[in-house]
Design a protein around this nucleic acid. Structure first.
Lengths: 128, 128
DNA sequence: CTTGACCTTAGACTTAACTCCAAGGTTTAC
DNA sequence: GTAAACCTTGGAGTTAAGTCTAAGGTCAAG
């Protein structure tokens, strides 16, 4: 699979894929002519990278995880890395559920009667 | 409350608070000498902004929400904005739970025996 | 054998979100 | 009253994550 095909399949630009390679997030074999050659499964990995990113993880963090799994880390280190990531994901889910509650509460306030209760998000009326 | 106090209480730098103001995310009254004066509740709002950010929302998105709530949007528009945000949060929670499953699976694989199953995150061994 | 659609690299440019600096005014502590 | 610790503005610099451009190589179709 050449870069254009991977770009189309994964929904990121060619430039971005080359950038990810430079950052060590993905790898590519090469044809004799220098063209990059990706395995099918790369689509999955790139999608995972984008997903991680959209959830607030930096490329560096994602890279550390991906690198760690592929690279020179020991069994124990990989395990710790994964456990750490898992804890972080759990924390983030909790935060997200808090945020959801805040937005849902504000919706409940705004929706039925137009009441303006304290604790609003409104920066002009924030509680003194 | 002056800017230094808010910075300390909310855990962001003075510069960042001024930047948020420039971007329209927060507002401040002024003392006659020009110093910014924040209400207590501002701490809460700033924390919320940081939380939203750490969950992958841009300042622009957060600003639209905060602005919308404070600003010239109609009842219906605010309601739509909030519903949209809620849907987005739900989608993100689902993604996060997917990501959690991927990491947890990899941990289960890596942990007990060092087996290398297909579907790994490893960029060097991604399925062909 | 040339046209169009691919691919390569290196490097410049862009945007978001800070972060720092300079030059100066204010307030508090001694 | 002066030194330290605040505050102000404007503007420059930084980092991450792309995005774009230039100059050129490859390949299939007509």
């Amino acid at each position: 699979m050449r870069i254009g095909r991977l770009a189309e399949a994964s929904g990121v630009s060619r430039d971005t894929l080359r950038y990810y390679e430079k950052q060590g997030l993905i790898r590519a074999d090469r044809w004799p002519n220098g063209y990059r050659d990706y395995p099918e499964g790369m689509v999955e990995l790139v999608r995972l990278i984008r997903q991680g990113q959209s959830l607030g993880f930096s490329l560096k963090e994602i890279g550390a995880l991906v690198q760690g799994l592929g690279g020179g880390l020991s069994q124990v280190e990989v395990e710790q890395l994964l456990r750490g990531k898992l804890a972080e994901i759990d924390a983030r889910m909790k935060e997200l559920s808090n945020l959801r509650a805040v937005v849902a509460r504000r919706l409940a306030e705004a929706c039925p009667l137009g009441l303006d209760a304290p604790g609003s998000l409104d920066p002009k009326r924030v509680a003194s």
